[in-house]
């Protein structure tokens, strides 16, 4: 396997043109980004609404679990037969699978905001929108972004599977390689897909670090530590 892999990687033809590695990586990342945007546009407002009003939480958790059990290959082939277009079928499939993690993260994040904090904000005269955007969302941000991170992993993986129904991206190397018994290509494609997932995950982790307010980070770290962070002062 290793010599075949080396052969494939060292062939300059595999690094150029529309089938070349850079083009395929961009294509794959492009599908992920597009699906992520659509999924977030659906899931974040819905999660904020459910987390804020607690309405429909049971339905949300239940359907989230069901979608997690949904076999990606089954979903993608089903959608392809329905729409007979690889791109449309794959995109819908990606969005369907990208929504639940973001929804769950957003819902959990908003729900986890201390009730006293929201109560204080209301008592101080913040209106509904001010409470949501200035208090609840910043505090929920770590969990919301955690949901986005899970969604990205799911999307990179599913986009590779969707190459089976004709989608482009790195999954092409896997299926084309299998069809041509070119195991160097298959292995290279698998490694590239894994690398893309790992790198995107690191990027989002960095974004998460940069966006989470410092006070929230300290509070989370304090809660994780064994004892209370600050010792009680004595005012006797």
């Amino acid at each position: 396997m290793i010599p075949e892999l080396v052969d494939w990687v060292s062939d300059p033809a595999n690094w150029q043109g529309t089938d070349g590695v850079p083009a395929r990586v961009l294509q794959h990342a492009g599908y992920v980004a597009l699906a992520l945007l659509i999924a977030a546009a659906i899931a974040v407002p819905l999660g904020l609404f459910v987390g804020h009003t607690r309405r429909g939480a049971v339905v949300l958790v239940g359907s989230g679990n069901a979608i997690r059990a949904l076999p990606t290959l089954g979903l993608v082939t089903f959608l392809f037969l329905l729409f007979t277009d690889s791109f449309v079928a794959a995109l819908i499939g990606l969005v369907v699978l990208g929504v639940p993690p973001i929804l769950a993260g957003t819902y959990a994040g908003i729900q986890a905001v201390d009730h006293d904090v929201v109560d204080a904000a209301e008592g101080m005269g913040m209106r509904g929108g001010q409470r949501l955007w200035r208090i609840e969302v910043p505090i929920a941000l770590p969990l919301i972004l955690g949901g986005v991170r899970n969604a990205v992993l799911q999307l990179v993986a599913t986009a590779a599977v969707a190459a089976y129904v004709g989608l482009g991206g790195l999954g092409r190397y896997l299926f084309d390689g299998l069809a041509n018994f070119d195991y160097g290509e298959v292995t290279a494609g698998a490694i590239l897909t894994a690398l893309l997932a790992v790198i995107l995950d690191l990027v989002i982790a960095a974004v998460q670090r940069a966006l989470v307010p410092k006070g929230v980070r300290i509070a989370t770290a304090g809660r994780r530590a064994a004892g209370p962070a600050a010792t009680e002062e004595v005012v006797a």
């Binding site: 599977v161 896997l174 298959v186 698998a190 894994a194 997932a197």
Partner: peptide
């Protein structure tokens, strides 16, 4: 964390190697 990040199809195809 790292292993969990690897997409399933890619993992199944790297293992033989």
């Amino acid at each position: 964390n790292l292993l969990y990040t690897i997409p399933s199809l890619a993992l199944f195809m790297v293992i033989p190697g």
